[in-house]
Amino acid sequence: MTEPLLQVQDLHKHYREGRTTIHAVNGVSFDVYPGEAVGLVGESGCGKTTTARCILRLEEVTRGRILFQGTDLTALPRSRIRARRKDFQMVFQDPNESLNPRFSVRRTLREPLQLHGLYSSDAQLDEAILRVNLEPEHLGRLPHQLSGGQKQRVGVARAIMTTPRLVILDEPTSSLDMSLRIHVIVLLKRLQREFNLSYIYISHDLSTIRHLCDRVMVMYLGRIVEEGRTAAVFDDPTHVYTKALLSAIPIPDPTLKRSRILLKGETPTARVLMAGCSLQDRCGFVLDECRQPVPEYDLGDGHRVACRLAREHPGFQTAA
């Protein structure tokens, strides 16, 4: 078995806010293997972006270890992190904020090469821009002279300039028209194959995750509540939260009759760390035991779920 590229072990990230503590990430563990695309899905405030920022060491972790090719990134001094960033890169949500408006595309793409001593000639930039289906003529443009889709592709091109092993993508399609998502996903898949990249793809959009990722982890209130192979989780969701999330997505097929699991209310505050299942106050099927700590159930082939109902009362859905 190959070694994991990245191992996240019992990651916690808490923020102080006055006298209260925000429990953003509460004990997240997962591995990412070389060449694998892993989806991290959840709604706002679930801790998915914080998890990514901890991996990149844009945030200091409260507790836990992040091993990249065996090295604990959380223990590395800041000066050493910078050199390692060549191997893990990020594509941000909003290209308008992540691209310097005064830098030409050429300068944006050249800079990571120069920082890591990899720059030899502008031919590298021509190659890089073609990789993301843009033309060398785009190198002379400033971000405001590009469309949203083009800007996002520049962001992708920049992230892979240093031929990283791992790219973290944070909602890269959320600023684009829906009809353009398919192009972004196809591009990412091609680059992944060409460069044997691993992806951590962060999104609330389950549709893109389904088509890009090999595995998916569903996060809610700072915890992974269900994980497994993408097909297993999407076709046979087990946690009430995953079921609700999937059933909430409108499907463009008017002939389909669907039943929907609606959750009650809204995501509660992360100021209080709940004992037991974090969904207990929104779940329509909640049992007394759900207020106790929830064990993680192994359903085989890496499919794991933290839901008592799913395991001990599999018929709950029909009973309700």
Partner: peptide, 24 residues
């Protein structure tokens, strides 16, 4: 046709075909 061809369905795993989608 192309708007429908650009859809990524959450309930189906399918080969993605950009030739049926809206061009950039």
């Amino acid at each position: 046709e192309r708007l429908l061809g650009s859809i990524l369905r959450v309930d189906q795993a399918a080969e993605l075909d950009t030739t049926r989608a809206i061009a950039f």
